[in-house]
Design a protein around this nucleic acid. Sequence first.
DNA 1: ACCAAAAATATACGTAGTTCAATGATGTCC
DNA 2: GGACATCATTGAACTACGTATATTTTTGGT
Lengths: 210, 210
Amino acid sequence: MVPVPRQQGSRTERRREETRRRIVTAAGHLFSLQGIDSTTMEQIAAEADVAKGTLYSHFPAKEAIIESLVQQRFRDRHQLRLDRLHNLPDTRARLVLVLGELMEGVRSQPDLFEKYLASRIRTVVSLRPQESTGSGLRLLAAEIIRLGQRGGEVRTDLPDELLCDLFEFVFVEAAKPFYLAPGEFDAAASISRSADLFLRATRPDPAGSD
Amino acid sequence: MVPVPRQQGSRTERRREETRRRIVTAAGHLFSLQGIDSTTMEQIAAEADVAKGTLYSHFPAKEAIIESLVQQRFRDRHQLRLDRLHNLPDTRARLVLVLGELMEGVRSQPDLFEKYLASRIRTVVSLRPQESTGSGLRLLAAEIIRLGQRGGEVRTDLPDELLCDLFEFVFVEAAKPFYLAPGEFDAAASISRSADLFLRATRPDPAGSD
DNA sequence: ACCAAAAATATACGTAGTTCAATGATGTCC
DNA sequence: GGACATCATTGAACTACGTATATTTTTGGT
């Protein structure tokens, strides 16, 4: 019989997990310090104090590290956001809250946002059927939609996928003015318009209205 | 005073223009033959019979060649599409027509579509204020919107930019099912749903309706 | 204590996109 | 018509991603 070292929750596994986190953290540090593109894999390896090969034993490519970083940052605040969502009266308020918080993230790390969107596109186009569900963003969107549908504010005759995509779209739209003119960026107005657009597009048919 | 060789319409300029076209054509050829990613800049240079450096004197990066190719392909059919647009009765018909035609392009060259979207994101995010207006796609969208507004079907209290973006979005949505399940792809249904979404979101306020 | 398996290391290498100093052709001016 | 300035063009060098491999270290089970 082969020994078959069953490793779940074992030290090896914890060690590996810790290394992985150290890599992601190091990457995040360097990214915010010098930008993503000018941060090399060797630098990340040095900062995380591992060999280059180790990076590739954990992540197939640089892009994967970026995705992982985004996911991690999302997870950090996810529960908190969910809780706040449930304390709000209607979909519009929920949209405004979430869009506002997301905007903060966008402002602090624009290039991370860019890479996130780029990788989203790839998962859509390059025949990967929603492998990693993107990140917490879509979970958040799904929750807003679910609550909205329950309250009768959001139509239920469209695929959830589509509604999530629409949320993502209005999020990008809300962030756009920031990029084009960061100085005179009126976040509140931009967000409000995005929320409107979303509500308009997803409002139930007025056919059977009172 | 400095000599300042004014070169417009001169031989050098014609030569340069021709070289540029040869590059784009060569790229297009190789792309459709072996895919974009597996086509190297060296191959493009060889096919166009120029040195590698020449590529970069015409285009700042590989991405720029791709954009140029997309633009060129769009321009080829642009006038024809515009004409057809004007012969249709309402916005819905125009959307369905244009989305249908675009879908053909997507089907024939999926990776080109992917790269187009990726570069669109970069122009939004990377502080380039709509430098090249994307491609003919946005011109087409703008025309549909203009006609729709003239006919009172599309609201006029939103920036044209936003409406174009929304068109782009519903276009991507329409194309998505094709990527996820190319076999059972019902183009007509997908397009119809996208058109609906667009009309819903851009319909004028029912406040002052009759 | 010993052994097998897995993780991490160090290093060299292939590849492809991008840069740059030098070269050559073209148009202008005297 | 010749010299000079201005570009387009060249191709070699550079950078960074990703791969491969031989070696060492750590871990888990017997």
